[in-house]
């Protein structure tokens, strides 16, 4: 995880169909690159009022996807805009003119959240396997998972699903070889150097180590997602809600 990079890497820009472009900042997961992608998306979002035809930007871990209406904006215009979004954040940062009102800096602030987790048992059916594969005890896995403050890198895949970075390296495991057909809502999961929480029942390939009652998604709430990119998350172990099998 490189620290303190003063400018984003040069993006590559590819077509995503006939009405969208995606700017990629690289193939590695690190918090700096994630921050550049979020800032560029925020900058583009602010251009929308003055640029009809510009769709809502969607940030990824190291990328930004933007749709556009080709009869109101050319692909080249959008290409230049994407370059400006990334270069713009760089120039402003270099001039020391970055303020929170001008460009949101997701990684400097962020709301703090504590997520209560019931670990193991039927709430976290993969805890024992994770312990076995990492050579740790279940208690050590829980302690490690709850030991760090995570940042919400991006929200997506399904409504309100947070990708959280970064999981301690000792817990780094590839995804399950065979995804589960059914992951219960509220499942607290890990994969690679990331942690996540499933807001809905869904198929999924991450390792399930616990479960929470926190309402990650409520369409009647504004915003409906509990967690936003840049927010800080801590997991707090609570006694199991259900008897262990």
């Amino acid at each position: 995880m490189p620290e303190g990079r003063s400018e984003p890497p040069a993006p590559r820009i590819d077509q995503a169909g006939d009405a969208a472009l995606i700017a990629s900042l690289g193939d590695d997961l690190d918090i700096e690159t994630s921050g550049w992608a979020l800032r560029a998306a925020a900058w583009l979002e602010r251009r929308r009022a003055e640029m009809p035809g510009l769709g809502a930007p969607v940030p990824g871990h190291a990328s930004v996807l933007v749709s556009f209406e080709p009869d109101r904006m050319s692909e080249n215009e959008l290409r230049n805009l994407l370059l400006a979004a990334l270069a713009g954040t760089r120039q402003r940062a270099q001039r020391g003119r970055v303020t929170r009102s001008e460009i949101p800096l997701p990684f400097d602030g962020g709301v703090r959240h504590e997520i209560p987790v019931s670990y193991g048992g039927s709430d976290g059916p993969d805890l024992a396997e994770v312990a076995g594969r990492t050579g740790l005890s279940e208690k050590q896995v829980i302690a490690l998972h709850a030991s760090v403050e995570y940042r919400v890198l991006v929200v997506g895949f399904m409504p309100g699903f947070p990708y959280l970075g970064f999981l301690p390296a000792a817990l780094d495991l590839p995804r399950r070889a065979t995804p589960r057909v059914r992951v219960p809502a509220g499942s607290v999961a890990i994969a690679g150097r990331q942690a996540g929480i499933y807001p809905f029942e869904t198929p999924g390939g991450w390792h399930l180590i616990g479960r929470t009652d926190a309402a990650l998604w409520d369409p009647g709430r504004d915003p409906p997602a509990l967690l936003a990119p840049g927010d800080r998350v801590r997991f707090v172990p609570i006694p199991p809600r259900r008897p262990h099998p």
């Binding site: 169909g17 995606i22 930004v64």
Partner: peptide, 12 residues
């Protein structure tokens, strides 16, 4: 092979 996740859209 798995790549760093990125935003998707219908039709992908």
């Amino acid at each position: 092979r798995e790549i760093l996740s990125h935003p998707m859209l219908p039709g992908a």
